[in-house]
Structures are given as structure tokens and as C-alpha cells.
Computed example of a mutant assay.
Amino acid sequence: MKDYIIGIDHGNGYMKTVGSVFISGLDTYIVEPPMAEGVLRMDGAYHVIGENRKAYDPDKTKTMDYYYLTLAAIAKEIEMRKYPRKDGSFILACGLPIEFFGKQKDAFKTYLSQKKEVHFWYSGKDYHIRIKKVVIFPQGYAVIAPQIASYDGRVNVIDVGSGTIDILQVINKKPVLSKCISLQVGILTCIDDIQKYFRMQYNMELDDYSIQEVLQLRTGDLPEELAASTQELICEYTKKVLAELEQKGINLRFQKCLFCCGGSLVFKNYGDLKGENIIFNTDIHANAKGFEWLCRGMER
């Protein structure tokens, strides 16, 4: 039987596969919702996927939420790639931030492979699949792995995620393990700080959608004054993070630095980053693609 590989990046803000991205949010109901789209039915309940993001927690195995989000991600890839919904055999290629990789790898693998055969219903369709294997890779490294042969000298890979910013230093194509660190200052830190500011300054709640629009250089439905305040706070956030990177020994003036994944767009838009040594890969699917590439190499 053929095994199908699906790469999944379990972000604190967004779930990403090669072909899809959706908010890492889940709301559970006992009564069936009026619309089937985006609804996962399993374990006697209905789980509405992708509406309200979860609070940041570095341990994704505490609840069943990320397991249900994983099944939704698998279903999306099955539909996009025309994989079999019944009796297909799947290998999940996933990842963890560098700081948590050693401590959480085994537990996360056990969590994702808790059922060898899974029967669930998503967006009005039945799925009956087999999880043959789960493999876990370090985030960030997966982004550059397919092009590692082209990296000469020293490169600082800075994977900007929602929960963490993971730093991996590569010298002459080899990761330097002593330089692998994760900072708890991901994009959600910026969003939370902006929301606190608006509660204190304007006595109002600013939702994630409004902030995400400004992060991507759009104003959405925000008035000009509020959009300008949000932009100032984002600039302050990027300055703090870049200063922290400098404190960790990353010289942004001359060392080659690759800012990658979806959150890197914030630093491209708002960070005062100049010079030929600064590179951006803003592909939000980059880790998921890298997980699949690494997994295919292992299987060969």
C-alpha cells in the first residue's frame, strides 16, 4: 500500500500544510452547528475549526485540541491532492521549535499517533485513514534543508512564528547546536501588547483580524488614527526583538540573516533591516514543505 506524506506545521497562531493555512482555533459544541463547512465531528462532539485562536501554550499535548486541528489539516490536504479518504495510509511530517525539540519530541509523536486508525467526519465528508508513522523535525532547519548545499559560510536562520522566534546558526552547511535558541517573543506577543494598549488607551477591544490587517500593511476597517497607533506599536515590537537578537550575538549589520516563514513579513514591513546580508523568505508554508522534503529523504 502506498504511503502518503503530509507535512503539518502546528503553529500557535496558524496551522499550515503545503496547500492550506487556517487559524489554530477550535470551539466545541454538543449540538450540530447549522453549517458543515469547517466542522469536525469526532468523540461525540462537533469541533468548529479555525475561528478563534487558542491562547499560547508551549505544550500542545495538554488537550485534544491540536489533535483535532491535525485531523482537519489532513482532511484539507486529502481534498487538495486527491488522496483517498478511505483506507489511505499516511505519514505525518511535523515539527517543534528548536528549544522544545529535545524535551517534547517523543511526547508530541505519541500524541499525534495515539490512534493508528482514525474515523472522523469533516466538512460533510467521512474519512477513515491509517496513521502509519509520525516524524518530528526542528522548525527553521526544515526551511533551509532543501537548499542547504547553497549555504556557504555562516547563516543565521531566524524563523519568526506566532509563539516563538527560533534561531538556528548554520556554518558551512552544518547547524551549530550551541547556537540554537528559541525566544518567547513571537508575533502573538506583539498582538497581545497591542490589545492591552487599546484596552488601556481607548477602552476598547481590538480583535486579531484588525491587527493582522495592519501587520500586512493594510488598514482594513480601522480608522486612520487607530491604524497609525497600531503601526507605531508594531515598530516598537520589531525594535525590541531585533535588539534581543543583537544581545544573543547576531550582528544584523554584516552577518547573513535569513528571516523566514509567515511572521518574517512583519519584519520585512516594519523592521529597520537593510543590507545585502538580510534575506527574507516570507512563505508561510515553508516549514511544512521542508518537513515533507526531509521525510521523503528518510523514506528513500
Rank of each mutant, 00 (worst) to 15 (best):
P175L: 01
A75T: 05
Y270H: 15
Y237C: 07
L40Q: 05
G275L: 04
Y237I: 11
T238R: 01
Q247G: 03
S89N: 12
K268H: 10
K62H: 05
Y197H: 09
A227K: 14
S20F: 12
I136S: 01
I8Y: 13
A72N: 10
C235W: 00
H119P: 00
Q104I: 00
L168I: 13
G25D: 06
S210I: 01
F90A: 07
G102T: 09
V155K: 11
Y237P: 05
L273Q: 07
K82P: 00
D193I: 00
L242T: 12
K132I: 13
E244V: 08
M298W: 07
I167Q: 02
K60W: 04
F291S: 03
I278Y: 04
Y46I: 08
Y122R: 04
Q147Y: 14
L215I: 14
Y151T: 01
D192P: 00
Q212D: 14
I91F: 07
L92F: 08
F22V: 10
K196E: 13
Q231S: 15
C295K: 07
L222S: 13
I191H: 07
R300Q: 11
F22D: 10
G13N: 15
D3C: 09
Y56C: 01
S89A: 05
F120Y: 13
A145V: 00
Q104F: 06
I165Y: 07
P97F: 11
L215W: 07
F198E: 09
G275V: 06
G11S: 12
E232V: 12
A286Q: 08
I131E: 09
K82G: 13
I23Q: 09
G153H: 11
E117L: 02
P97A: 03
G95L: 05
R300S: 13
F267S: 07
I30T: 09
K86F: 12
H119R: 11
H285A: 14
P33Q: 04
L92H: 05
T230K: 08
Q184N: 15
W293D: 14
V118W: 02
G262W: 14
E77Y: 06
I191N: 06
I158D: 01
A228S: 11
G13V: 12
V157G: 00
I158A: 01
N277I: 06
N269V: 04
N287G: 06
I5S: 07
K256A: 10
V18L: 15
M35K: 08
E205S: 10
Y67K: 03
K86D: 13
C260F: 07
F137A: 01
K60C: 09
M1T: 13
V170N: 01
C260W: 06
V143Q: 04
S210R: 07
R41T: 06
L294N: 05
V241I: 11
M35D: 14
M1K: 10
C235D: 05
D3E: 13
F100Q: 15
D283F: 06
V118F: 04
I144Y: 03
H285F: 07
L168Y: 00
I129W: 05
V214A: 02
I129Y: 10
P58D: 12
G290Y: 09
Y46R: 05
M204R: 14
Q104P: 00
G153Q: 05
R199I: 05
Q231Y: 03
G13Y: 10
D87C: 01
G88R: 12
D3Q: 15
F198V: 08
H10N: 06
F254S: 12
G88H: 10
